[in-house]
Amino acid sequence: MAKKTYDLLFKLLLIGDSGVGKTCILFRFSDNHFTTTFISTIGIDFKIKTVELRGKKIKLQIWDTAGQERFHTITTSYYRGAMGIMLVYDITNEKTFDDIVKWLRNIDEHANEDVEKMILGNKCDMEDKRVVSKERGEAIAREHGIRFMETSAKSNTNIELAFSELAEAILDKSAGREADADLARIAVERRPSRAPPARAAPACCS
């Protein structure tokens, strides 16, 4: 049989309005390169990168999606399997920031309840064209209880960090779940109380 080259497999998803730089971010992360010449993403694209976290080899399977409304049926079908979602906006474009709320609703509707989320304000290399302040980004993230970071695919700022932080969060959670599962096996009667506390906060805000 094929030899296993990793310990864990995490499925991640990149979403956000078209043009915010999702494809560039992914390309920077997987190939450590930036190019302005990307064709528009139609449907869904895919990249793999293996990272090492706490001595574990983690294979990240990352799906890049098309931002436009038309592709939602096809892209939302990936939400379900995703363990982590990167929600990207463009700090030089107000509308992409406003749409974050819409994307969060989408996640609530289609993704697993315990999916790890992170908001990225991309293109932070373009300080002179900034229209969304870092504070506003942080505020919306805090409001929804989500991690936040400003990134630049162009100048390679925080890209690696963002992915490893998201992966780490998933790792924490899955470790917790393993422990949980062990507990459940020992004391079956305790199971009903397991689900609720995890997801109470984000579900109620809109």
């Binding site: 078209s18 043009g19 010449t37 064709i39 528009s40 436009q68």
Partner: peptide, 13 residues
């Protein structure tokens, strides 16, 4: 705006 983004990345090769 959407058209503009896309035509600027048409056949970049």
């Amino acid at each position: 705006l959407q058209i503009d983004k896309d035509v600027r990345r048409l056949c970049p090769d």
